[in-house]
Nucleic acid binder design. Sequence first.
DNA 1: TGCGCTACGTA
DNA 2: CGTACGTAGCGCAG
Length: 584
Amino acid sequence: MDLEGALHRAGARPGDPLGLVVLPGLGVGLAAGGGPLPLAGDPADLVRRVERGLGPRWTWWSAAGTAAPLVAAGVHLARCHDVAAVHRLLVGGSRDDPGAAWAAAHDLPEPPPPARHREAAHGTGLLDLDGALAGDSGPVDEHGLLAAGWVEGRAFGPDAEPAERLERAARWAALAVRTAAAQQRVLAARPDPRPRPAPPPLAVQTGWSESAAALLAVELETTGLPVDRAAAEAVVAAEVGPRPDGPAAEAAARAARDAPVRELLGPVDLRNPAQVLAALRQLGFDVPDTRAWRLERLRGSHPVVEALLRWRKGERLATTYGYAWLEHHVSADGRLRGAWAASDGGGGRMTAQAGLHNLPAELRPAVAAEPGHVLVRADLGQVEPRVLAVLSGDAGLAAAAREDDLYAPVAAALGADRATAKVAVLAAMYGQTSGAAGEALRRMERAYPAALAFLRAAEEAGRAGRDVATWGGRPVRVGSADLPEEARAVRGRFARNAVVQGTAAELFKAWAASVRAGLAGAGGAGRVVLCLHDELLLHVPERDAGAAADLLRSALAGTARRWAGGDVRFAADVAVVRRWSEAK
DNA sequence: TGCGCTACGTA
DNA sequence: CGTACGTAGCGCAG
């Protein structure tokens, strides 16, 4: 079959949207401007050829649903439009299923959410849940909404003939392209907040980078984080002893860990906070709870405090990050894998499961490059105050951002030391209402009035139940008005912080997408292996280390210029290391 | 089994 | 009365 000719007849052009639905083992449904194009064959092979020959902007309902088998087969997908990711960027909230995106793109009321157990099946065509699709019903129902049988993948299920399944997959891909086109029109019409807008519009750029991040999330899950299992086990063993070989040994190890504390505290269940609290009160401690930061202050007043804090540390390693965790999440190939979400929570940060985002510092030496490779780590310095300078257009804060250490000029402006300046800046961004930052905060008002006014406006919007929006235009839903004062204050702080945190997340994802593209362009084996809010970790062959470090810096400079308009400088600290712990 | 609570890890 | 997230054990409701 002449693939190039078929693509040409279907109206596919380089760089243009090309709808894609994958039917594993069967083929792919493509859709360009000219209509649906079903192709039988090995999906990875077909997509690889189209990527090489045409270089489209792959357009799918979601990377999680469509790209996973391709990524698993080692296919690199350069550019994409992710309908789910863009939908979340456009309307905020947590819905990103095809039905919701389609309805929003057609100004229809949002349909009820899909049943929970079906969520994983969106657009994959992998699952046959409730039998065959009724008759020859199409993908759009009588209300103009997407039909359940198509959303749930039954339309492509094994009940139909292969040719018919591919035909439907291509029609489904065509609907993704139509939805994406509608989304693109909305993005392009959004006001551009940059001081000197230049094409492409910021919202369009953000749609692309959010889409790329969704694909990167799939890749991160496939690639995994390289872990030196022996080193990890050594850390665990040092804290909780050797791996128990059965339930009895495990119970014995637990009892042995508990014994030193129970000698001092009495025969209480250490895993029951209420019992621990009661026992501490028996010993004369007047504490409202048993949290570590509270007990920290009581260190030295009684040996039990030290023992309990030490026990807690070991207990964390024994439970959350112990042998069971290694067993479940670190594969035989030495990779720690968990599910990733590219845009989660209120502000749209990346999140990860399997402990990838909360690895205790003690375990970081176990994150290690494989033989012949290095880790290249880069973290954004003081990203949130720099983002605040972008959002608010505060000239003084933008000037401070020209320094590698933003807090130095801020300290000078406040007439305070660096530590105080840092606390004041963070207090302003997080909405702290008490504590020692008071006087410094008042000086912040005078030194950076636009930045503080921006934060106050965000907080006020949150208190009043009005949505706020990130730089890229993502609405941050704050919920309804009419709440008790306490709840309004909480929501105000949430809104104040979510705009900054969410905007930082957008910059980070744009940077990560650029780095991902640069690594692919270099044609090497370098991979992004971890995204940690303001930190990127790459795993690259030794000889590519220097190029990867350069890429991290140049990608940031380019991203910041396109994204912020060049008025605010962003800086990354880059280090080439063998083990994650070696970097600062 | 599912949920809220307490606790704690990261940014 | 600084924000966000994920995970685990416990106690309780169903």
